[in-house]
Design a protein around this nucleic acid. Sequence first.
DNA 1: CCTATAGCCTGACGGC
DNA 2: TGCCGTCAGGCTATAG
Length: 258
Amino acid sequence: METLRRQLASTVLRVPIDHVAVHAQRVLGNTSAPRVEARLTGHAFTRTARHGKHLFLAIDSGDWLDVHFGLTGDFQYFTDTDPDPAHDRLTIDFADGRHLAYHDPRLFGKINLIDDPARFIAAKSLGPDALDPRLDDASFVEALNRSRAIIKSVLMDQRLIAGIGNVYSDEILFQARIHPQTRANALDAPARARLYQAMKSVLKTAIERQAEPRRMPQHFLLPHRRAGQACPCCGGKIARLDTGGRSSYYCPRCQPAS
DNA sequence: CCTATAGCCTGACGGC
DNA sequence: TGCCGTCAGGCTATAG
C-alpha cells in the first residue's frame, strides 16, 4: 500500500482529471457514481496519505478519496491504445493522457468520498499504523496483553494495529519464531520483544523492496510460503494451518507451539 | 465486552 | 479439453 501511495504521489499529483467512469457501483461505499464523477472531474489530486491499508488522495476541492483494495485490488495504468483492463471498476482519465484503473476482480475493495482522513480513521476504529513511530514497544505490548485471541489474528486485527495482512503476519511470526496459534497474552517478554522488532523490520524491508515478492530476501518466509517448501532457516517443511478462516504458513520446527 | 465464524465475490491452478 | 475442488495479500455482521 505504501509502495502504491509513493507511485501515485510521483505521477498523478496536480494533473487535472478529465473524466471519471464508475463501472461497478459495488465498489462505492458512502457515495454514488454521479457524486464521485462530479467531485473529481475538472479537479486534481494534491497529496496522498496512508493509514494501514487505506490510501487517501486529497482533491483540490477539499474532499478526500479513500481507497481500499480488499483482497485483489490495485491500480493499473493504461494508455489510449491499450484496451481497458478487465475488472476495472473505476477509471480516471488525466489531462496528460494517462489513464488509471481501479482494478478489483473480487469486488472486496471500497472507495469512499470523505472530508477528513483522521475522522474517517477514528470512525472506523482503526488502530495506529504499524509503522507509526508512536506505536512504540510499550504500547505494542499493552495491546497484546489485552487480548486472549491467537497472535495471528491479533496481528491482523486492524483495530489494534493497522496495516498487517495475512502474508506479512506470517512473515513477522516466522522471523520472531512464534507459533501462529499462541495466545497473545501468553507470550513472554522476550517473545513480545522479538515480535515488535520483526513487525517493524519486516514492513520496512517490504517497502524498501517495493513489496515485490521476487525481491524479498531469501531468508524471508515469503519466497517459500507454500506447504511442503523448504524452510529457509532449518530446511524443514513449511506447513499450512487454518487460523480464523485464513491460511497460515509457518515452520513447525522454527516456530514450535509453546 | 470479547472471541470465533460465515459470508461476500471471482479467477487461477492442479488433479482426474 | 472439461470439470471439480481448493486456494486466494480483507473485512463485516452475527453468534456464542
